[in-house]
Simulated assay, not measured.
Amino acid sequence: MTATMIESDDGARLRTWTVGSVSSRRFPVVMVHGGPGVPDYLAPVAGIIDDLCLVHRYDQRGTGGSSWQGEHTIARHVHDLVLLLDAWGHDRVVLLGHSFGTNMAGYFLLAHPERVAGLIQIAGPFLDPWREADQAAQRARRSDEQQARLEELDAIESRTDAEEIEYLTLAWFTDHADRTRAWDWALASARTLRPVNYAMNTQLNAAKRADPLESRVDELRECLPPGAVIIGGAGDSRPADALRRLATRLGCEAVIVPNAGHHPWLDAPDRFGAALRAAVVRQPPRAGDPLDVRDGPDEVHARTVR
């Protein structure tokens, strides 16, 4: 693995990682993590496919080892990704987004379709209506005591480190389908994905509401590359039907992994790994190689991995 700091045009330094090997057949995969406001956590996902292609990850501006400066806008983050592609020397890549990263990948595709050779979206973006179902599922997974404690911690203006870890664990453990391991997974994330950039979270979520992808689905469909895939977990608190509806409107495949949550590589590593590797293989190849995609961009397939 190669770790590199890449400087943006405004002086902000972005921490990046590269694994895998250059393939004459496949475009590099660039992973866009979610949050917003937490550092990259997609190393385990990169490890599933790094024998197939080159894989890049990065801490978004304002998170982890990257510079924590400036106002956060969709346009700024899209521009950062353009500069990263240039620094890596890639004219076109396959974008892989997770959670809020799927929204960022969508905005990037709208702004720069000529740079996107393929698209793999994991656990998003979700097509409204989905928030009420998500909130209801999360509440059902918390006890009354846990819900009360979450609300108590949320009301604290400045939490201690221990309180912050508890707060994030209570907020995140409902993401997982495996209820026996959900708390431990969330606790591990709460301990490592800190500090959370709450200003970034507020600014980017507001920007997403101001320019919702839901209102631009027709535009997305027009520039969607062949072989685009949405992968979701049947056990995510966010409803899988929202992903299926989006796939239908985009004309792409939706793969729903049983017994998997918002981080399907944790809940169902074998099934998710098989789905992800298949998605990478079906992305359009570099010019001159035969297209290894069975389904055209206008054919819709929603299936469950067995």
Score class of each variant (00 low, 15 high):
A46M: 06
A87H: 12
G65E: 15
T73K: 13
H56V: 01
G37W: 01
Y58V: 07
D80V: 09
A43K: 07
H77I: 02
W88G: 12
R57F: 02
D40T: 10
V19A: 14
G20I: 03
R57E: 09
C53P: 07
S21H: 15
G37A: 01
P28Q: 11
Q60V: 10
G35F: 07
L84G: 11
L54Q: 15
R57W: 00
T73P: 08
P36N: 06
Q69W: 02
V19T: 15
G47L: 03
I49S: 00
D50P: 07
D50Q: 14
A46Q: 05
C53N: 13
G65D: 14
D50K: 11
V22Y: 13
S23V: 02
P36H: 10
R26H: 15
S66D: 11
H33L: 08
L54T: 15
P44W: 07
V30I: 14
V82P: 01
G62W: 05
T73V: 09
L84D: 08
H56A: 11
T18H: 13
V78W: 02
L81E: 07
H33W: 01
L81R: 13
D51F: 04
V55Y: 08
D59S: 01
H72K: 09
R61V: 02
S23W: 04
M31Y: 06
S21I: 01
G35E: 11
Y41C: 03
P28C: 04
I49P: 03
L52Y: 01
D50L: 05
D50N: 15
R57S: 03
C53F: 12
M31E: 04
Q60D: 06
P44L: 07
D86M: 00
T18Y: 08
M31V: 04
W68M: 06
V32G: 10
R76E: 08
G37V: 00
H77C: 08
G62F: 07
D86N: 12
D50G: 10
R61Y: 07
S21N: 14
P44G: 03
Y41A: 05
D86P: 01
S23N: 12
G20M: 01
A75C: 00
H79F: 09
L42E: 00
F27Q: 09
G37H: 00
L42F: 05
V45F: 10
L52V: 00
R61Q: 01
D40M: 01
V32W: 11
T18D: 12
W88D: 06
G64T: 06
G20A: 09
D59G: 03
S23Y: 12
G20L: 06
V55W: 01
D80A: 03
L83M: 13
V32D: 08
L52R: 13
S24L: 13
Q60C: 11
D86A: 09
H72V: 01
V22L: 13
D51V: 05
G65I: 03
V30N: 07
W88R: 07
V82W: 10
D59C: 00
S23F: 06
V19Q: 13
H33Y: 04
A43P: 00
V82L: 13
G37Q: 00
T73G: 03
L54W: 11
T63S: 09
L42I: 10
S67K: 04
H72G: 01
D40I: 00
S67H: 09
L81P: 08
S21V: 14
H77N: 11
S21Q: 15
V55I: 06
